[in-house]
């Protein structure tokens, strides 16, 4: 398979990964109003945790990745309780300084532990090689797996936010934090949980992304612009918006590399500027 179909396929897979890694940032920005530039660190934590579990300890891939996501969620929860909670009432500039500082600290810590190089990606045999969707249409087995898993996780996030009591509480706190507290919702615990879930999703995304985009200590800084683009393009606080934006960014970026390799990232940045001028509130404005 080549040409347009493969561009759409690879772009969608890339978009799914971007969605997983940035949806938590969108929720924290919409819910708690924190410009968390350190969010990419959670993706990196998940990635390194999975490398340790799968590559060093020899755990099966399908067990190691969810466990890495859980570890990331736990770390995210602790950090929310200890550090991020202090930032909620602060201005965006303080949040920027603090969270960029966290990224620097994380990069130094992870370089100290794992070295500055690229991390190895171990895939089980059944996820290697190509799979024929139909005769003549071969795609990478792992990318197909990512596409399906990403779809399932996205559906789970929608279900969780729209159909569960927890999701209703999150949405209530998003529209009016004080009022939500007034009707008996434990807002502090809600923030802790949603922050941990967002971190866990980013951790899963980071672990799953290693075979596609790699992992090294500077990962959180390298992809920071992409996470921010997804969130602002989609509109902070909207999961639908993040998904649509992530898919657009993924497909445009892959298409640009395929058809206009000389343009580099130029295309995607120009698109973002144009779209933000067209819809400053994001594709899906929160009501």
């Amino acid at each position: 398979m080549s040409g347009l179909p493969i561009v759409l396929f690879d772009g969608t897979v890339y978009g799914m990964l971007l969605f997983l890694m940035s949806v938590g940032l969108s929720v924290t920005l919409g819910l708690m109003g924190v410009v968390n530039l350190a969010h990419g660190s959670f993706a990196a934590i998940g990635g390194f945790a999975s490398v340790v579990l799968v590559h060093r300890l020899g755990m099966p891939f399908l067990l190691g990745v969810p466990l890495a996501a859980l570890i990331t969620a736990a770390i995210g929860g602790v950090l929310e309780a200890v550090l991020f909670r202090r930032l909620y009432r602060r201005g965006p500039l303080d949040q920027v300084l603090f969270t960029i500082g966290m990224v620097y600290v994380w990069i130094a810590v992870s370089t100290r532990i794992w070295g500055a190089g690229q991390q190895p990606a171990d895939l089980p045999a059944f996820l290697q090689g190509q799979i024929a969707l139909w005769p003549g249409a071969e795609v990478g087995a792992y990318r197909l797996f990512l596409l399906i898993l990403g779809g399932v996780l996205a559906a789970g996030i929608f279900f969780g936010l729209e159909r569960t009591r927890f999701g209703a509480r999150v949405r209530a706190a998003q529209s009016d934090r004080d009022m939500a507290g007034g009707v008996g919702i434990n807002v502090d615990r809600l923030f802790l949980l949603s922050f941990a879930i967002g971190a866990g999703l980013a951790g899963a995304g980071g672990a799953l992304a290693i075979p596609v985009i790699g992992l090294d200590p500077s990962f959180p800084l390298k992809y920071l612009a992409f996470f921010l683009i997804v969130v602002s393009l989609g509109g902070p606080g909207t999961v639908t918006g993040s998904l649509v934006a992530a898919l657009i960014v993924g497909i445009v970026d892959v298409a640009g590399k395929y058809y206009l390799p000389g343009a580099g990232g130029f295309l995607i940045y120009a698109l973002v500027v144009a779209m933000l001028i067209w819809r400053p509130q994001g594709l899906v404005a929160r009501t």
């Binding site: 612009a225 933000l276 509130q281």
Partner: peptide, 25 residues
């Protein structure tokens, strides 16, 4: 100046990145 808040931050970020890409190419 059309944008504000996060959107403004992103417009400046992407304009800067565009220029960087252009100079790099």
């Amino acid at each position: 100046l059309r944008a504000s808040g996060l959107t403004q931050l992103m417009v400046t970020l992407c304009l800067g990145l565009m220029l960087h890409e252009a100079a790099s190419r």
